[in-house]
Amino acid sequence: MATELELKLMVQSEYLKSASEFLDEFCLLSQTKTATRQATQSLMNGYFDTEEATLMQAGIALRIRAVNQQFIQTVKTRGSNRVGMHARGEWEWSIPSDQLNLSLLNEVPLPDSLADMAWSRHLLEVFRTDFERQIWLIEEHGTAMEVVCDCGKVTSPFGEDKISELELELKSGDESGLYRFALQLAKQLPVQVSTVSKAQKGVRLKQGTIEFPEKPNVGASKLALAAYWYEVWLVYWEAMLFMKDDILIQPVRHSMAQLARCLPQELASRLDRLDEIYQTILQTEDAKLLSAFASNKETGIIMLEIAQWLNRTSYGASQ
Rank of each mutant, 00 (worst) to 15 (best):
L28F: 14
E165T: 08
T209L: 13
N217H: 11
I163M: 08
F181T: 00
D272V: 07
K297R: 13
Q207L: 13
T32A: 08
M85V: 02
M256G: 11
Q207W: 07
T280F: 06
D272I: 07
S94K: 12
S221E: 09
V154W: 07
S113Y: 05
E14K: 13
S295D: 08
M243Y: 13
Q184M: 09
M240S: 03
L274H: 04
K171I: 03
A224L: 09
D112Y: 11
V11R: 00
I301V: 08
L225T: 10
F158M: 11
P264T: 09
W93L: 08
V203D: 14
D116A: 10
G142K: 04
C151F: 15
L248D: 06
V193H: 01
M85D: 12
I64V: 15
A260S: 14
I302C: 04
A186D: 05
D286P: 02
H86R: 03
T313Q: 13
D49T: 00
L267E: 00
Q73V: 08
D98G: 15
L124P: 00
K222V: 14
L263R: 08
Y278R: 00
D49G: 02
G89K: 12
L114A: 06
L28N: 14
Q319F: 07
A257N: 14
S30G: 12
G89I: 06
A115C: 06
A226L: 05
I277F: 05
Q99P: 06
T313C: 03
P251M: 05
F26I: 01
L7N: 04
K198F: 12
V218F: 11
I306T: 02
T40D: 14
N106L: 05
I210L: 10
W309A: 01
P213W: 02
R312W: 04
R78M: 11
A224F: 00
K215E: 11
Y47L: 07
A182D: 01
M44E: 13
R82G: 12
D161W: 03
V193Q: 04
S197I: 04
L205Q: 10
H86Y: 03
L205R: 03
E107S: 14
L274G: 04
E139T: 15
M10F: 11
H86W: 01
P157W: 03
L137P: 01
E107K: 13
Q207Y: 01
Q265M: 09
Q73I: 07
E285K: 09
G46A: 12
F48A: 04
L304V: 00
Q41W: 13
G159P: 00
Q279W: 11
W237P: 00
